[in-house]
Design a protein around this nucleic acid. Structure first.
Lengths: 248, 248
DNA sequence: CACAAAAACGCAAAAACACGCAAAATTTAA
DNA sequence: TTAAATTTTGCGTGTTTTTGCGTTTTTGTG
């Protein structure tokens, strides 16, 4: 087996399991420990993974471990500030959950006057700090992972709402793949949210661009506004340009 | 499991529950106590947590510990600990909002297994930290003052629930006046909550005893359990004794 | 004060690692 | 095609890291 093939194999394992053990690789690839160690070191040098005693971890795993809140916080604030321009007085806004959305809410101007429907308790609490904002929390089963309400009850209530704008965070975005997700319930939720809103805005830090996950929410064209921390002329956004999508 | 992964796991637990027990980690991670202690020590060296006898606390939790913005926090913890005994495995519990209730949720034992309906987003978030707890958030208009959902939509959903126990905080309690309140919406809410529960428990710090407010929720006899920070033989509780009310 | 639980300390075994070196494999060049 | 150059690989050796165990010390509790 060629060195390149081994490297590919290791990266597949990393992407699949977020980690590899040196000992496992020795058995699977039938080479000596030293070879594996050298392979891992080379992949580290290329910045593709993170080495620890006993094996290696995926780079993303590492970054999310270290301190996720501080990690991408600056980017999220930039995104949030851009996105606040989308909210006009008197609007009815449907808003999701997640750290980016929460940061967005914190960046809203004090005097804002609008009606917000949300599935996120934390977002509701934060929105309640604005005097002229009406907050309606959509109730249902509460998800431990994503910290939002979900399930049939939520979907059914969403179907009764007609919002001017839907604001949501992203798991992954891809020029062809569109908006995708890994969790079935969240996927259903996002679909329902998009369905009841005239326009939609997606807040997305650049590192979640060009990734496709298993479950599709909608194609790129269904998104009205894409907000990233990058300049809207940035090359990595070129593929997302279309007459439907407005890049902020 | 890799050391790095253990550290990650521990930090996740810390961020989730604000504390970890060494003994719990030993079981969960299936390693010796010494290893856990060393892990904790290393995380302390990195300034990620705060070590105490029996486990460790979150750094932020510790700093927010002494700035007791929560009024009468000590009393509320005592009340909360007493009240946890009311929750049995498999129960369906309807739970309100407020600082006392929030403290109660934080004091619940780790392994608790029950279903909670709540009108408080903050309580929902806190409850979601327990693995075997199912949380249903009752949605509706969100009140800026009391940080709970309220209004017709909430009342109507409450009417569809049948809970084993209803847990709520108090504005005021009086031997003759019963449970009273100042806010019309909250009053309606509490009535509805009591109506759909077999039993009810009221958490009440002693300084809210012997007070009557404008709007009546229910008479003392409608309350199954009264939980205060005082000893249940304390003289100021004498007037609340009745065959219906159980004083903890 | 006594008792049990938790922590600290030193120690030793096992596992993982780093480094140099030489054999083997691969590539390059004549 | 062959020989030289280069890369890759495996092995031996010594070092470091990690972990669990026994013992002693500290801590919390009644």
């Amino acid at each position: 087996m060629l060195k390149r093939e081994r490297h590919d194999f290791i990266m597949r394992q990393i992407n699949l399991h977020n980690r590899v053990l040196t000992s496992d690789l020795v058995q699977l690839l039938n080479v000596s420990e030293d070879t594996i160690r050298r392979d891992l070191q080379e992949l580290v040098d290329e910045g593709l993974l993170f080495k620890v005693h006993g094996g290696a971890l995926s780079k993303s795993y590492h970054s999310s471990f270290d301190d996720s809140t501080v990690y991408a916080r600056d980017s999220k604030i930039i995104i949030a500030k851009k996105a606040t321009n989308l909210i006009k007085d008197g609007m009815v806004v449907l808003i999701g959950g997640g750290t980016t959305i929460l940061e967005f809410v914190k960046q809203l101007p004090q005097g804002i006057s609008a009606t917000f429907f949300t599935i996120s308790p934390l977002v509701a609490v934060e929105l309640a700090k604005y005097n002229n904002v009406e907050v309606i929390l959509i109730g249902g089963l509460f998800s431990k992972n994503s910290q939002v309400t979900y399930g049939g009850h939520v979907i059914s209530q969403l179907s009764e709402i007609k919002a001017d704008l839907c604001l949501m965070g992203t798991s992954a975005l891809h020029p062809e793949g569109g908006l995708t997700d890994t969790d079935w319930e969240i996927n259903q939720l996002k679909k329902a949210m998009l369905a009841c809103s005239k326009k939609s805005a997606v807040l997305c830090i650049s590192e979640k661009l060009d990734i496709t996950l298993r479950l599709k929410v909608c194609p790129i064209e269904s998104i009205s506004y894409l907000v990233t921390e990058l300049d809207n002329k940035h090359e990595s956004l070129a593929d997302y340009q279309s007459k439907e999508v407005n890049i902020l």
